[in-house]
Amino acid sequence: MNKKKYFNYFYVIPAILFVLIFVYFPIIMNFYNSFFRMTSYSDTKTFVGFAHYIKMFNDPIFYTAIKNNFLYAGFSILFQVGLGMILAILLEGRFIGKRIGTFFRNSLFIPSIISIPAVALLWYFIYNPQIGLLNGMLDLVGLEQLKTAWLANPKTAIYSVIMMSQWQYTGYIMVLLIVSIQKIPKELYESAVIDGANEFQKAIYITIPSIKSMLAVTTIITFIGSFKLFSEIFIMTGGGPYNTTQVLGTYMYRAAFKFDEMGFGSAVAVIIFAITFAISIFQLKSFKTT
C-alpha cells in the first residue's frame, strides 16, 4: 500500500518539472539577468546594478511603448467587451432567428482562430497606400482626401494596428459573453415580460447584471492580452514610423535581439512581468467569485 502511494507522485512529477524548469526558473533568472550587461556572442557578464532600469525610465521610447499598451487596452475593452456585449445581446435576443444567430456567431468568431501573423499580413495589404483595400474603398465612396499611408503615418499607425485587433477579437469576446447569457435562467425573462418589459429594458435590467462577472473576466483578459502585444506590431510596423508604435514587447525584442543588449531586454521583461502579474492576480480573484 505504501509503495503504491509513493507511486502516485510519478503522475505529477513530469508536469511539475516542466513548469518549474521552463516557466518559473527562466522568469527568476530574468530578474537576475536584468542587473547585468551581457551580449549573445560573448560570454562576459558585467554587474551594472539598477543602471538598466534607470536608463529605461529616462528613455522616451519606453513611455511611448507603455502609453501604446494602455491605448491598445482602452480601445480593446471598448470594442471587444463593449461592442462584443451589444452584439451578444442582439444575437441572443429575439431580433433574429436561431439559425441565423448561430451563423453570425460562428462567422464573427472565425478571425480569432486565424494566426496573428496571417491576420497582420492581411491587414498590412489592406492598409497598403497603393493597392490596399482601404484606400481603394475611400476612392470608391469619394473620400479621397482621407487617403493616407495608414501604417507609415505617425498619426494613424497605432490606431490602424489597434483596429485590426478589434476585427480579430471582438467575435471571440462576444462568444464568451453569449455562453454566459445562455446560462441565465429563462424564468427571469418570463417574469419580466409579464411586467411588460421591452427588449431594451430586459437587456439593461436582466442580461447585463446577470453577466457582470463574465464582463469582468473578459475585461481583465483583454487588458492582459494588451500587454502581451508583440506579433501584430512586429509584422505590421516594426515599431515605426519614428518609434510611434513601439509597445513593451517590441521594445524588449529590439533591445535583446537587435541591439544585443540582453540585460536591458531583461529589465524590460521584468516590467512586462510586473504589469501582467499584477492584473492576473485580479483575474484569479474573479475566477474564484464566478
Partner: peptide, 8 residues
Amino acid sequence: FNDYTNAL
C-alpha cells in the same frame, strides 16, 4: 520621389 515613400 513618389508619394508614400515611407510606406512602400
